[in-house]
Amino acid sequence: MLPDGEWATEVKGLGIDIAPIPRIARLTERYDSETLNLLFTPGEIKRCQSSNHPHRSFAVCYATKEAVGKALGTGLAGIGWNEIEANLTQTTKEGKRENSIYLPPFPLPPFPFAIHLHGDASIQANRCGIQSWLATWCYWDEHVLVHVLAM
C-alpha cells in the first residue's frame, strides 16, 4: 500500500517483474547483437556487455521492459521491446552518481536506475500522462526483480 502523501497521488502506474538470469543469459549467448537489437537497444547491449555482470545486467534490462509494459497498462502489445531502455550505469564504479551525489562504493539493494522510452512506448506514456519513472532492481540467487513507478 502506498503511504499517504501528495506524491502518492502522482503515481500513474506500477510495474514489477522477475526474470531468471540463466534464461536471459541463454538468449544473449545464442544470438548475435544484430538479432538482439530486436529486444535490446544498442546502448543496452553495449552497457551490458561491458558490465562486470553482463548476464545479470541483461536480465534487469529484460525485466524492465516487462515491468514498464505493465505500468503502462498495455503490456507490450503494440510496443517494441527496444522502445523501452534501461540504463543501469547511473552509479559509477567509484560509487558516485553522474550528478556527483556521493553513494557508498558498494550500495545496498535495491539499486536505482534510469528508464528511457522511445517510439510507441513514449507515445503510450504521454497518453497516460507519465512524465518520469522511478525504477529499482535487486537480485537474489539466479533471479532479478525490477520495480517501476510511473509518475
Binding site: 538468449l27 530486436l38 516487462e66 517494441g80
Partner: peptide
C-alpha cells in the same frame, strides 16, 4: 511464457530477418 515468446521472435529474426510482433491481448 513471455521469455519463450521472445525466443520465438528472435528465432524468426535470425532465420528470416524479420521482426514479428507476437505480444498481444
Amino acid at each position: 511464457d513471455s521469455t519463450e515468446i521472445v525466443e520465438v521472435a528472435l528465432g524468426l529474426k535470425r532465420q528470416l530477418g524479420i521482426s514479428v510482433k507476437l505480444e498481444g491481448r
